[in-house]
């Protein structure tokens, strides 16, 4: 399985939103609970639209919820 370079803080945001359930978040953004589980465990990278929808539920920006962790890019920077 290929490594998903997009990390996320959905669990933290759900906790801060009064321990919002995965099912509730799924319903609010229009996907299945399994998709939220897959995103949270970094097995699936959401589309840009879904990323924006999730960020909007938590009243924050996409960058706050999702971060790009490209190890190849980091190696290139270190070499420079």
């Amino acid at each position: 399985m290929s490594h998903c370079p997009i990390a996320n803080s959905i669990r933290k945001f759900r906790f801060n939103a009064g321990e919002m359930t995965q099912d509730e978040l799924a319903k609010r953004v229009g996907v299945t609970r399994q998709t939220i589980i897959a995103i949270e465990s970094a097995k699936y990278s959401p589309s840009l639209e879904l990323a924006f929808r999730i960020a909007r539920v938590f009243n924050t920006t996409v960058e706050e919820v999702f971060t790009f962790e490209d190890t190849n890019l980091a190696n290139v920077k270190e070499e420079k």
């Binding site: 229009g30 996907v31 299945t32 399994q34 998709t35 897959a38 959401p46 589309s47 879904l50």
Partner: peptide, 9 residues
């Protein structure tokens, strides 16, 4: 059965 088919499906 699941009512929606999302992008992952």
């Amino acid at each position: 059965e699941p009512a929606i088919t999302d992008e992952r499906d």
